[in-house]
Simulated assay, not measured.
Amino acid sequence: MKTLISALLLGACATAASAQTGNPGGPINDHLGDYDYGVCRGVDPVCYHDWARAPVKQYRVLLYTHTAGPRHANLGTPLAPGLNPALAENNVVQREMLRIAGENGWAIDYTEDPSQMANLSGYNAVIFISTSREALDDTGKTALRQYIRAGGGFVAIHNAFGTLYNWPWYEGLLGNANFYDHGPARPADVVVVDGKNAATKGLPARWRFHDEWYNLVPFPTKVRFLATVDEKSWGAGDVRAEPLPIGAPNGPRPANLPPLSRYPSVVGRSPGHGSFHPVAWCQYYDGGKVFATTLGHDAKAFEKDGEPGASQFQSLIVGGIKSVMGAEPFCR
């Protein structure tokens, strides 16, 4: 019996390994995981729950920026509890998203209060921008899952990938992807690989942008890839003095992070994703629509007339938001 069980386990492992081959970017991405989250997901609209809903008089979005761990500087001072609290001058993301919503005729609420996430049914899109760690309590997790299952739209931007690491359903929501690490923030070329999507239409085939270029484990699967970063374009120059990733050997480090190990790392560090390093994609997931991008580290990326590539980045996220809301065709 033990021999039979061992043979079955070995066969299952071989099947799983073979299922994880063939990812774009070369062998480096072949064994980063393609998990089964127990839901319908992918680019087929059969995974969307197109249930009866009220007609849209004005699109309404909810911006969530709660951080329970590292906090990106572009979020500014933590917000007071409640919905739509007063903003400080350094709350760049929230202020600029108010501008973007106004320019597009959307109503927008914003919050960092987990208690405000208990009922999401009034929103056409829920947007997580650089949230971190355990950003939702159990009530919020349930509300988000039920919102998605009712055909809701979700947008994940930048450190939304550094959020809720230990909730498998959320990892699947991100496209079978999670933040692993990044090198120093630096400029590189974003390459559009699907220019027909609502998020990418009108964008140049290649545009310069400054970011952290997240490495992902797992590597996204069953999604429609929209844009990548050309790793050969980032070079070694023009690196700004910013905090390095967790585990980096030197450089300034945020005070709210634990100290680095006293010993040099003897475990592997992700060197990137080879010839195919995704930075934006879309998918249907558990009844809902998802647009995700790892871009959005710099404050100036959100500002009108900000740094080079800011207008392209903003066009990308606006198109992604429109697509999950139903204002533009989704994921095609």
Rank of each mutant, 00 (worst) to 15 (best):
A160R: 07
G235E: 03
T3K: 13
P252Y: 07
L87K: 13
N256D: 15
I129T: 12
G153K: 14
P220V: 14
P252K: 07
N104A: 07
E89K: 00
H297A: 02
D34P: 00
D30V: 03
P264I: 01
F128K: 03
T111C: 03
V324G: 12
A236G: 06
L295Q: 01
N119Y: 03
A19W: 14
I321G: 05
P168A: 09
A143M: 01
Y170M: 04
P81W: 12
D230G: 02
D137Q: 06
S323P: 10
A292V: 11
L98F: 07
A177N: 07
S311R: 12
N256R: 12
G76F: 02
A107I: 08
G235H: 02
W234M: 15
V318D: 00
N176V: 08
A125D: 13
V92I: 14
A135H: 05
A236T: 10
W281P: 04
F154R: 00
N84R: 09
E171V: 15
F291V: 05
R253V: 10
V290M: 13
V267A: 09
E212C: 10
V239D: 02
A107S: 12
A52D: 11
Q283K: 06
G309S: 08
W281F: 00
F219L: 02
P308Y: 14
Y48A: 11
C40V: 06
S130V: 11
A292F: 05
G237T: 13
G247T: 01
G175Q: 12
S275C: 10
F128C: 08
A143P: 03
Y64T: 04
L4G: 04
P308K: 15
E171R: 15
D138S: 11
Q283C: 09
